[in-house]
Amino acid sequence: MEERKKEIIQTITDHFKDAVSNPYDGNRVDFTIPKQQIPAILFYLKDEMGFNHLSHISCIDWLEDKQFELVYILWSYTDRVKVFVHTRVDREQPVMDNIDMIWRQANTYEREIREMYGIRFAGLEAPEEFLLEDWQGPPPMRRDFDTYAYAMKTFWDRQEARSNAQDVRETIRRRTGEELPDFAKKYSR
């Protein structure tokens, strides 16, 4: 496996001059690369190197560096090696390339990252809302989102809780564009 790992590192650093290989033990190969080259390196890893299983896409907020880190983890069933591809995205203007034409399940990961971290994926076609409903505040997984203050404001100090509550029928109408039936309007606030 060590030889195969060396071969992978050699091929990738030959093809992508900006890719930096980070040393790791075991079956892990690790690269850092500028964000513009992410679709190219993932295409290459999938089509030429046999890393056809997208295992994970994760995002980390490095508030002190003013950057987001995106991590793509791929697995090769033939070589039994996993590849980590790291990239950094500017926190002020978080824009990233969409990769759901390479693996369509990436769509789900990107939707979640867009909602939780506010990173825009260029060309991602999916409804804005995924896990959160009627969310107005900042993306909640960012480090500067104060969970405690939000919880106190929303659940503790809330005045007139009932009258402020959302109406689920309205949400359905807004999401789907369907008009509410008359009997539902009668009960709608």
């Binding site: 994970h56 995002c59 369509r104 769509n107 789900t108 990961y109």
Partner: peptide, 15 residues
């Protein structure tokens, strides 16, 4: 700093 769980259903139940 980050804990991120990947479930099988994340792919199976959506796309």
């Amino acid at each position: 700093r980050r804990v991120h769980f990947r479930g099988a259903a994340y792919v199976h139940a959506v796309t």
